[in-house]
Write a protein that binds this DNA or RNA. Structure first.
Lengths: 199, 199
DNA sequence: CGACACATGTAACACGTTACATGATTTG
DNA sequence: CAAATCATGTAACGTGTTACATGTGTCG
């Protein structure tokens, strides 16, 4: 639902046409999330289907404009007013991978962690470099601020990921030092047997 | 692609049936990402379609088992061997929202930031409480470790998010103190006019 | 002229997700 | 008996994403 609302927000500034929306979207989120132009049109179609936007005539140059409807403004308002739910966060592939790596026998967990760490470090460097450029190019426009904030979120996130990976590693050696698993427990399929409710 | 691989990893321990997979998946990721049983079956169907798993007979109780194929093992191997790409991270709704809030006139940016902060703080408390329970219940099983790591990732992530939100706020007051936008620049649609390549 | 940016759109697919249908078995 | 758990599956939908088709205008 992010692109939908993103385009809706852009249209709230006034009628726009498809290609323009893509340009403006990318000006704010930059190279991290390149937006396929086609998707703008499909999304506009869906927004129109849901009555959140409506065609708003054509340019003298043939540009097809769209404008937000009242329902669209309401929707947008409520989007800004309500927080992004983090109590049910989207499934994170890395977390799932680690959870599986730790559980399934025969996986080089440390290898997985270190491989990911290398990659995340690299990503962090890229972001940091980009941030330098962003600050240098900053002309005080709001788009520049948006782009900078997005970049910094990526940086904060990536740093947290790296810290977590390090934490995982220490947890792993911690476990390795403790008494080994009781034999046979690993291979047991452990059929779900009439478990009682925990509530 | 996370659930696909997750189930594949679970099946790598030996043949399992659908309902069992759901139970084992949730034992590792817990209450954060409840997995609808139906999805297990649809995903199994797609895995079979792609030749990564194959039916493996039935139980005396009528349980329909699936097993990983060679192709499945190869796929799984390469999944563990390659890092989750963070250079092109999935679009983050919060980042997009903030980018739009900062850009579109008439949005109470500070309100958005603070509302989100409240919510994220709440989420963080929930996770921390859960972590306490997880540690208390920890019987040294690998599943408990997995669940703990997943929880800690959520904690690290949420902490980073809160820090970022605070950072945003300080950036905002920083900007507010600076010379205001040159007039008219905000409302200008700024058609994409024959822009030259930046490369 | 050829490459490239501008511009609009469609078709098809993947994955995740929910809702529903159905039935056996257990437990209070 | 009723409710809950165990268990399998299907139908349908939504969003995101890519690939493709098509055409105009500009610049070297």
């Amino acid at each position: 639902m992010s692109i939908r609302h993103g385009l809706l927000a852009l249209l709230d500034q006034g009628p726009r046409y498809g290609y323009q929306l893509r340009t403006e979207f990318e000006a704010r989120t930059g190279a991290t999330w390149p937006l396929n132009v086609g998707q703008v049109y499909t999304t506009l179609g869906r927004l129109e289907r849901d009555g959140l936007v409506a065609p708003h005539g054509e340019d003298e140059e043939g540009h097809v404009y769209y404008a937000v409807t009242d329902a669209g403004r309401t929707e947008l308002r409520s989007w800004f007013d309500s927080p992004v739910l983090r109590t049910t966060p989207p499934r994170d592939e890395l977390a799932i991978k680690l959870a599986m790596a730790v559980t399934v026998p025969g996986v080089d967990v440390t290898g997985v962690v270190q491989g990911q760490r290398r990659h995340s470090m690299k990503a962090l460097q890229d972001y940091t470099r980009l941030k330098g450029q962003a600050i240098a190019a900053d002309a005080g426009r709001q788009e520049d601020l948006a782009w900078l904030l997005v970049l910094e979120q990526l940086i904060f996130q990536t740093e947290a990921e790296i810290r977590w990976l390090d934490h995982c590693e220490s947890r792993l050696v911690q476990r390795a030092a403790e008494p080994p698993e009781p034999p046979g427990a690993t291979e047991a399929p452990a059929k779900p047997k009439r478990r009682r409710s925990l509530l």
